[in-house]
Amino acid sequence: MPSETPQAEVGPTGCPHRSGPHSAKGSLEKGSPEDKEAKEPLWIRPDAPSRCTWQLGRPASESPHHHTAPAKSPKILPDILKKIGDTPMVRINKIGKKFGLKCELLAKCEFFNAGGSVKDRISLRMIEDAERDGTLKPGDTIIEPTSGNTGIGLALAAAVRGYRCIIVMPEKMSSEKVDVLRALGAEIVRTPTNARFDSPESHVGVAWRLKNEIPNSHILDQYRNASNPLAHYDTTADEILQQCDGKLDMLVASVGTGGTITGIARKLKEKCPGCRIIGVDPEGSILAEPEELNQTEQTTYEVEGIGYDFIPTVLDRTVVDKWFKSNDEEAFTFARMLIAQEGLLCGGSAGSTVAVAVKAAQELQEGQRCVVILPDSVRNYMTKFLSDRWMLQKGFLKEEDLTEKKPWWWHLRVQELGLSAPLTVLPTITCGHTIEILREKGFDQAPVVDEAGVILGMVTLGNMLSSLLAGKVQPSDQVGKVIYKQFKQIRLTDTLGRLSHILEMDHFALVV
């Protein structure tokens, strides 16, 4: 994948999101292997301009796509893939009243899908469409860049269908997702969380590099694949309309690839034109409109599966009536509230959605109805927002919020430890010299600072030695090549209790 991002070429006709291997024109390309080798690009942008032909009021008969309808489940399912879809609609009884809503608040519980998330729908649909058009064949390999849930859905379907599955996901995604993927037989590649989507090191860039190296491999490409919004247009939206008897006044959905909100909203605009569509985008993402909503100094966020630093091709923002931004604290607070007060075992993005819903639905009156999409299960986040310690460490809970008995030293300040200034190293000294210094002084790690004293990161003896043994660096290389740029900081005025929580999850903390 090139470091400079080429513009994806656009073909003359058809839909841009065809499933299957992508040609340089962004659509299915038939021909000899030699032709494909000559024409197939190194990668295709996940934010390529959409060429979708959908228009409100256009006859369904003019759609270029294969459409399906929700099917009634048999008493005995032939395999677990038949437990994807037909998820329950559940009334939220307490939270709406707590925040003064007059309307009825309903939750579409997508964590009841077989793999635990709304992404099971698009995973199965992308595979079925690729099999139907002859792209996927027995023994082929599926590769997908994902925040985890699409990966789980694909790995689940691949396990049943017999495909090899490789999932490329950023490091910030939970260990629970990784464990589930491994249990399903998927191979996992992790990428830096802070890598831009168009960087060769991003999950998108690495996935395309693997595709170019592995024979008979395919990126189904949830960011561009029409099967993504079509899955929701054909099934999720129809289920909502049936469950609500066609009567709903507002739908609120958090947005990642945009397939969920695009597919549902398009069908609702056709069948229930008075329904307002509300999009939820986390602070630090750029999906919301108008652009002024996205202006923030924050560039990272903890909530998973929603928000991006690019506009995915499948996201149709014209069908969203209003956007709201959400933050991590309210997302996790509301997710825990949904679990504790409503018994809905949902993930953090569901918290984002409901946090926005109780604001947006203030305009609705008694007798009206708001539906929220709860995308995934708490299963993926047992060591994250479900953990009091994690919430404390991230600053989303305060010590006084917890009532468990603490040891005698818990409320003492870090400054009472009488710490001395640490050994520091410059980023320009060599790895070999740094190892000598650390061994001589008896230290395992040291902060790396520039000549102005600005902290650049941390270097550890173990990481340097393993990097040297693996051949990633040489003793003569500058130590700046092996620094940890993500590390926890703590102030002298913070409590030892807070430091204790940090050290339970990290090997060190830097006192500043």
Rank of each mutant, 00 (worst) to 15 (best):
T260E: 01
G274A: 15
L28K: 06
G139V: 01
R125Y: 15
S61M: 03
P21C: 15
I219C: 01
K119G: 05
E187G: 01
G258F: 04
P33Y: 01
A237S: 07
G153L: 01
N149V: 01
G274R: 11
A226L: 05
Q7R: 07
L105G: 01
T141W: 15
I127V: 10
G256C: 01
K247A: 10
H67C: 09
P21G: 06
A186C: 04
A159F: 04
V204H: 08
V160W: 07
Q242R: 10
T262G: 07
P78H: 15
V168L: 07
R18F: 07
G85D: 15
R190G: 04
S174L: 04
P6Y: 15
D179A: 08
L81S: 12
S202M: 01
K75A: 13
E62G: 15
N149G: 01
L77Y: 06
G11D: 01
N212W: 07
K137L: 11
I143P: 01
D179F: 03
V90L: 04
S19W: 14
R182M: 05
A157E: 06
P192C: 08
R125E: 14
V206L: 13
A69W: 01
G96A: 10
V118L: 10
I188Y: 06
S123L: 14
I95L: 01
D133I: 01
K267M: 10
A71R: 15
T262E: 04
A8L: 13
P145Y: 04
I76R: 03
S73W: 10
S254I: 06
K271Y: 07
F99Q: 06
L101S: 01
I122D: 05
L241D: 05
W208R: 07
I127H: 01
I44W: 01
V178Q: 01
A265D: 01
S217P: 08
S27G: 11
K247I: 11
Q55A: 06
N149R: 05
T262L: 01
S23W: 13
L77N: 09
L77T: 01
I143V: 05
L124W: 08
K94T: 15
P12L: 01
S174C: 04
H67M: 04
A265M: 08
K75H: 04
T193N: 15
S217D: 01
P16R: 01
P6I: 01
T146N: 08
M126L: 12
Q242L: 11
R266L: 01
H66M: 09
D245S: 09
I44Q: 12
S199D: 12
C165Y: 05
C109L: 04
E4P: 09
G263S: 01
C165M: 08
A114Y: 06
G185A: 08
K177C: 01
S147L: 01
Y233E: 01
I127L: 09
S199L: 08
G20V: 15
M89P: 01
L105P: 04
V160P: 04
P145T: 05
A114T: 09
I264Y: 05
K98W: 10
E110T: 01
A24F: 14
G139Q: 09
T260S: 08
G185Y: 01
V90F: 03
L184H: 01
Q7W: 05
E9P: 13
G256N: 04
P16Y: 14
G162C: 03
R161V: 08
R164A: 07
G274S: 06
R266K: 11
R125D: 12
I214V: 07
K211L: 08
D129G: 06
K82D: 01
H203Y: 07
P12F: 06
G85M: 01
A231P: 13
K36Y: 08
V118A: 15
H66E: 01
I143W: 04
P138S: 11
D47N: 12
Y163L: 04
I92T: 10
P12V: 09
H66R: 09
R164S: 13
P138I: 01
R164V: 06
P145H: 06
E270V: 10
S217H: 01
I152W: 01
E34P: 01
L77V: 11
T191P: 07
L77M: 10
E270Y: 09
Q222G: 01
V255D: 05
S175N: 09
A159L: 06
A8S: 01
R132M: 15
L154T: 01
H203M: 07
D129S: 14
R51C: 01
E128G: 01
T236S: 10
G205V: 05
E110C: 03
R45A: 10
P78G: 15
P170D: 03
Q222W: 01
T257V: 03
A130V: 08
S199P: 01
S32I: 07
T87D: 06
A157R: 04
A158C: 01
T235H: 01
C275M: 15
D245L: 04
P64S: 07
K247L: 09
G205F: 14
T260P: 03
P70V: 01
R45T: 04
E62R: 04
A183M: 07
T53A: 08
D120G: 14
P2Y: 07
S32A: 14
A237G: 11
A195V: 12
A114F: 06
Q222F: 01
S227I: 01
S217G: 10
V206R: 01
R18S: 10
R18C: 05
I166A: 01
G162D: 12
T87I: 10
F99D: 01
Q222L: 01
